[in-house]
Each structure stands twice: as C-alpha cells, then as structure tokens.
Design a protein around this nucleic acid. Structure first.
Lengths: 374, 374
DNA sequence: TTGTATGCGTTATCAA
DNA sequence: TTGATAACGCATACAA
C-alpha cells in the first residue's frame, strides 16, 4: 500500500522491533544498539522515506509542535513584519506556525475553540491592537495555553512583548528638533491604545527636554489607519498657528497624513516636515519619500516564539476547567530575557521591552529645516 | 488535575461509556440514546468545557484538520490578500491554516519535511512566483499531499488556480485607449513568469483590437518589485519617442515606476498616464493616486481551500514511497468548479481560471487623456 | 543489545 | 439503548 510508512514498516523491513527503531531514529543516547543495527535502521528509514507522524507524536508527547499567531490584519505591513519574524523563528525551532485572524476569532467562537481548545498548538501569540475584545479573548486563551501578547503592554495577567516605542518616538522628534523645528505636532493612533500612549510619551519627553511647548490642539489621535491619518492631518493643518513639523505615530497613518497635506496644498517638506514610526517598503517610493524610524518588528515575532518555547509564556493557572488540584500545563520561568527589559510584575503580567537593536532613523525626503530658518 | 478533560472524564461524570459520549457529542444520527442521557452528556461536556483533542482525532481519522499555505513574501500586499482569503475560508470550514515561507522551505529541507511529510496538513496551497525552486518543491509536495498551485499556471502536473489576468490587462489597456492613448508602453514582472506572460497577452490583445502598434522598445520586463519597476520605467522613459501611457503589470512594480517618472521629471498623469493591475490600500493615497484594476485575490485563496477540501487537489500518485500497490491518499474529482474556467488537462494538471467577479477598474488620478488631445 | 507492553484520546466495529 | 474493545503511530517503562 502507498500509505505513509510507519515505524512498524521500518521495523519489519529492518527486522527489529518497533521500539528499537523509535529509539534509534530519535537519537536516544542511552540506546546501546549494535552499530550495524543502527545503520540498517537508518538505511531502511531513509529508503522508505520514513517521517514520524505528527499527530501520533503530538498525542504521545502531549505537545503539538505548533505555535499559534493571531494577527489583526495580515495586509498591514507592520503586522506582516511580525508574522515574518515569528514564522522564521518557529521554523528554525522545528515548529510550525498556525496563523489566525483576531476579528474572526472574536466573531466565531468555534474558530476560537478550534485554535485554542483542541491542543493543536503549544502556545499562542496574540498581537494586541487595543480592540475591545482583545482582553477577553486573550484572557480566555491564557487560561488554556501559554500565551504571549505581542506589541502590547501586559493585559489580563498575560506577559507582553513590545518594542521601545518611547525611544523611537523620541528619536523621531529629536530629529525634527535637530533640524530647528520648535513647533511640532503629534498624530497618534487609536486613543487610549498602549502604542499611542507610549509614543506620545516619547514625543512629550523630547519636547520637554528641549523646553518646547506642548500645545493640546497639536495633538490629534484617531485610529491606526490611513483614512484616520488623513483626518488627523487635516485637523492639524486647520490650527492657527500651525506646526512646522508633525510626528506621526505610525507609518500607515502617515500615508494618509501625507495625502491630506498634499490635498491641502501644504508642501512636504518645504512647508511641513513629517516623520513617522515604522518603515514600510512603499514609503521610500512616495512623494516625498517618508523619513521614518525603523523598529525591529521581526524580532518581536521571533522573540515571542522564543519566549513561548522556553516556557516563559503565561503560566496556565491550575485547576481551571474541571477539578481543582495543582499540577499545571505551562511551566513558568523567571528572568528577564531580551535586551534591556523593564519587567513590570511577577511571573505573569511581565512587560518585556525589546530594546535591541535600537530604533533606527531613516532620513528621507519628508523632513527639512523649517521655512525661514537657516 | 487540571489537565484538559477527555472523553473519559465526561463519560465518568455522566455515568455512561466513552463510546456513547463520543457518538452523542459528534452528533452521530444513528445513535438512538435516551433523550435524558443525551442531555446529561451534553451538560457534563459543557460543564467540563470538553473539547476533542485535535491530535487524537487526527490520528484516529487520519485527517489533520489543517491546510498549509506557502507564500513567497508575507509583506507583499498581494500575497497578503491571498492569505486573508485562504485564512477566512479555512476557518469557515473548521480547518486551521498553517503558514509557511517558500524561500525558507527551499533553503531548509527539515522545514519542508516538517510541513509536508508529517501528516500535519491535509492539503497544501503553494503560491507560485516563478522561482526556480518552485517546480521541484511543488512536485515533491504533490507526491505526498493534495496540492494546489495558486496564482500560477499548472506545473509539474499540479492543478493551478489563477485569476483572469488577461482580462485584467485588457481592461486596463482599454481604459487607456478609451482616453485616447495610442502609444502605450508595457512594464512587466519577471520575464518568463506566467503572470507576466498572461498580462502581456492581454496588453497585446487590446492593442491589436484597436490597431495600435506594438513597439518592442516599449516592452520592459524586470522583476516583481518596486526597484524593478523603477528601473523599467526609467528605461521606458529613455525611449524616443516615448509612450504617452504605460500599463504596469503589477501594483508593487507600479510604485517604483511612479517614483521613476517623478524623478525623471515626467508628470503623471499630465505627461504620462499610468495604470496597474491589482489594488493595494496605499496607492489610493499616493501622488498621484494610482488607477488600478482590482482582481479578487482573496477569492484565489478561498477557492484554493475549497478545492483542497473538496478533494480536487492534485491526486497523490499511488505507490509512491514504499511498496507499489494501488489505493491512494488524495481522492481526485473532476468537474469545472469556479466561474468560467478553462480547464486545460485531465484530472491533474488542470488550470482553473477564476473569472468571477470580473476585474474591476478603479479610476483614480494617474490616468488622463494624452497631452494635446481633446 | 533488544523486545514486549502500555497508554496518549478518539472513533468505529461489534456485541449485548 | 448502551458498552467493551481495537486500532491509529509513537515513545517509554520495564523485562529479557
């Protein structure tokens, strides 16, 4: 028959027992089998193209060999970077990556159960976007699985991985200040979202450090998409006086903001400098090419994988579903991995900041000295 | 203990046998159990939060309940659309989606084996990009799994799903012609790639239909990325006479092409109209906003899932690995699903064209009547 | 140095 | 109307 060869097929052909084959092929060091036997087994296995059956292994070991990644919108280039990093890291660790979509999981309870409750994955990475349903779903997931939040602060007791957004914002704003700008506006993302707040903090810190005024009407927050950026920039340009430069908290938002400036007849960078956090391939080709601060988004994904695999994901609380004894699923480890973290809480609820590599300024055409300066 | 509840936990608590629970919970219609028993079982299951263990199911049923999707670059917005469609369709069908990266699979044999050879997935979707390794890898995969090529013509006997690229190109070029252009250039993607050829065919057909000349020096093909588009457009603009309009075979390429025109001081659309295949959110915010032809990329992913699930993926040839009898893995069905296909070969090697919904013209600012016309 | 037996959680076959 | 049992493929404790 042409079905996939199993251990017993190999065993039969090599004329040894199944268990011996298992031990030999899995590189069990305590197996002191005859060298000739070992070789024979290896040969037969190769000949037959034997590969262990994933489900059987998962069942026996009660480890799925897979990790889940939940993202809010694949088409967002920022999320794509995270996916890329996670994908590569998972593969490198011999795990497969299961991709899912947050809005869909929120809308479809079966889908959620299918992903989280069936033992298909050993850990879950959840890209938090500050949606309302995030907290609830993440909390539910964390009850069943080691879970890590990505690009978010810790919520619902689930550890979180994030980048040094404050430093990035600071770097961006300081670039503007260095060019001589003293009137700098802020376009954020969704109000109240972690990311917005952290980047706003960096913006404020930079202004403060240089004794520059903060004007409330120059702070506009809408959403994390281009239309929102468009609206925000339009609002900002309607102020009087108007800033000579704008820091935009996200490159996607910046795309809309640039379009709004263009439509308003405000030349960038001649009349208005614009800088944004995160880089995406297409902004380098824009008019003008956008100056950005790049953050290592791919590392975010990679580090999340590492965390999960090293057992530092959210510990699964004991006595969840049925009875009530101790013993647990996810092991919990301590320590502060990753570069320069600022651990917040205890074993759960930690916030880890990936500060390495640091934010990188990519100067392109959208920033320049303010008009009338020299 | 706090481990996940199993069937036997439910059975114990409901005071029935495991097999009865299994049948009741799986909605077996032939199970004529007492209504009260049924209810009790359901209650206990809900109480315990019982969910069948995926691996155990997979082992028993020899179906993984998962599909694999291999893509060449997640950050490409076009690929992201495909992923999105596949993801949604898989979830809707109760399957999970396993995402992988083609270059990585090409470089890492273990990763390939892990994805394809371990029974983790019931079918594989492979986004073909005309890379050299594609043929070989797809062929290997198809020997083990029902496989479908996405956005490609059939290769290596593997059925393929694609969009009506020729119609899209035609629609785009006819839009230009309709505006009065008679000198229309072509910027393609990777030379020799299916996509390039199909779109080129549409371009040619449109010109032919309107008795417009085809000038070899106005046909430039480089690669599927923005830098290539930049180079191609630069080459095109160096011709003399130069076309008044350019059809670009891909929106990503078009981003680079627009930048090149800008740098060359050629105003779009005043001096040069540009139109491209595929739509991406950011081009609407560009300068100028790009006119595009949208194709239902998400349906491509969704339909691939449907095909695999309905058993119309590549049939796995019998007698592959070990012995040599009949009996096979993937069932093969015939028929011509999806809208208006042009099936090419037999059961394997079919090419299915998704012609519905048809290409959609999105007129934005990058096209206009040629200069000096009225 | 190697083999036998057991169990992971399900489903399916058969018997009662 | 229900239950006992075998089997899916593997890893391991134990026996030889």
């Amino acid at each position: 028959m042409s079905r996939r060869p199993s251990l017993s097929d190999v065993a039969k052909r090599a004329e040894v027992s199944v268990s011996l084959v298992s031990r030999i092929l899995s590189g069990d060091t305590t197996v002191r089998a005859r060298p000739e036997t070992q070789q024979r087994v290896h040969e037969v296995a190769a000949q037959l193209g034997y590969q262990p059956h994933g489900a059987a292994r998962a069942l026996r070991l009660s480890r799925a060999g897979a990790l889940g990644l939940v993202v809010h919108e694949v088409s967002n280039p920022i999320h794509a970077e995270i996916i890329r990093g996670a994908q590569a890291a998972a593969t490198a660790a011999g795990q497969v990556l299961l991709l899912s979509d947050a809005p869909e999981l929120a809308a479809n309870a079966d889908a959620f159960a299918q992903l989280v409750g069936t033992g298909r994955i050993d850990g879950l990475m959840w890209q938090g976007s500050g949606e309302d349903y995030d907290d609830e779903l993440v909390a539910r997931a964390a009850r069943q699985l080691p879970t890590v939040l990505v690009n978010s602060r810790p919520r619902a007791g689930v550890p979180a991985l994030r980048l040094d957004d404050e430093a990035a914002a600071r770097l961006a704003v300081e670039h503007l200040i260095g060019q001589g700008h003293r009137h700098i506006g802020y376009v954020g993302g969704r109000p109240g979202a972690d990311l917005t707040e952290r980047r706003y903090a960096g913006y404020l810190a930079a202004l403060r450090d240089h004794d520059l005024p903060v004007r409330p009407e120059w702070t506009v927050e809408r959403e994390w998409d281009a239309p929102a950026g468009h609206a925000a920039m339009a609002a900002l340009l309607a102020t009087d006086p108007r800033p000579t430069a704008v820091f935009v908290a996200n490159v996607v938002v910046a795309v809309g903001a640039l379009a709004a400036a263009r439509e308003a007849g405000v030349a960038v960078p001649e009349q208005l400098s614009v800088i944004a956090v995160h880089d995406a391939w297409f902004v380098a080709h824009g008019a003008p090419p956008l100056t950005t601060v790049r953050l290592p988004l791919d590392r975010l994904g990679a580090e999340a994988v590492r965390l999960l695999l090293s057992g530092e994901g959210s510990p699964v609380p004991a006595g969840t579903a049925a009875d009530g004894a101790a013993g647990g699923g996810g092991s919990a480890a301590m320590g502060d991995p990753g570069g320069g973290g600022d651990p917040v809480g205890g074993s759960a609820g930690r916030g880890i900041v990936l500060a390495d590599p640091p934010p990188q300024l990519l100067v392109r055409g959208s920033t320049t000295r303010p008009e009338g300066m020299r």
